[in-house]
């Protein structure tokens, strides 16, 4: 249970970074932290105490032993790929913004209003 709470705390840390921070790079790091916390959460869902790897063919020693749920692991793999794409996309836009405005400060990047 403590792990789930820590996971939630990590999510909140990421959300804090997104909402409070003024630097584009720090906002991106906030989004990334949120992704990691959700990935961690998905892994925790599939975790079984003293579980083994879910792989066929099973070695003799592992027959009839509990194994961890493989589905969340597959989900996390997919989510990591998506997270990679999100982060890369955000970074490339941030670099372009830096070229246009000469700053990473989000307060000074304000051509859109209303």
């Amino acid at each position: 249970m403590i792990l789930f709470i820590l996971c939630f705390v990590l999510f909140m840390v990421g959300l804090y970074g997104v909402i409070i921070k003024r630097n584009l790079i720090k906002i991106i790091i906030g989004v990334a932290i949120m992704e990691y916390s959700v990935n961690l959460f998905l892994i925790l869902i599939g975790y079984v105490n003293e579980g083994n790897v879910p792989i066929l063919p099973l070695p003799e020693a592992l027959v009839n032993k509990p194994f961890v749920d493989p589905l969340p692991q597959a989900l996390v793999l997919t989510a990591i790929v998506i997270g990679l794409a999100t982060t890369a996309m955000l970074l490339s836009i941030a670099i372009r913004l830096y070229r246009k405005y000469g700053t990473f400060n989000i307060r000074k990047i304000n051509s859109l209003k209303g």
Partner: peptide, 9 residues
């Protein structure tokens, strides 16, 4: 670029 960044976050 600015709109896209906001949208992405």
């Amino acid at each position: 670029l600015e709109a896209s960044f906001k949208y992405q976050v």
